[in-house]
Design a protein around this nucleic acid. Sequence first.
DNA 1: TTGGCGATTTTC
DNA 2: AAAATCGCCAAA
Length: 195
Amino acid sequence: MHKLTRDFYNRNTETVARSLLGKLLIHCVDGIERIGKITEVEAYLGPTDLAAHSSKGNTPRTRVMFGPPGYAYVYLIYGMHHCLNVVTDTIGSGTGVLLRALKPIANLDGVNTRGPGRLCKAMGIDRSMYGHDLCSDDFYIAAADAPEDITIAASPRIGVDYAGAWATKPLRFYIYGSHYVSRLPARKQHAVPDH
DNA sequence: TTGGCGATTTTC
DNA sequence: AAAATCGCCAAA
């Protein structure tokens, strides 16, 4: 297992989003190491992306999105669920990748890890992790020792219908054919090549 | 100070 | 189909 370094996150957001698929999210809580393989993500492209929280500007809530890459942007949604994002690209870009689903690998037996809210609940992530460094020792992402060959599929992002033209852009990426995806597309599941 | 509103999940 | 539930933010 090889921990991802800051350089990994300091790249184009879509590239990071695709690259995150198949990687391992690891969180040590009370000495227990929970591990899940990332199977579904969404890219949020900064202030011009009307679906991104950073389109509301640099506020106390979105502050970390405008900081350096490789940090956790965690927020509370609908008053009850937490969502985890990874900050990407250069400082000030306001970009990030939402982690939406995992395949349980370790200490997640019988836990539902599909959906951004369930993912956080399963991994023990809440607002106390806001701004946490993902290049740290207790909370990080790593490449698997023997990564599987995967095919990446794309679709519009979930729950952003209000975002006008941005709502339909194919910025949701997931492992084609994986059972561990929060929602399967209604009709066509279109595979796209990774770049 | 107030009111509307979610990058969701669960339940009816 | 609709509730649950609360921090954030713009407007007053």
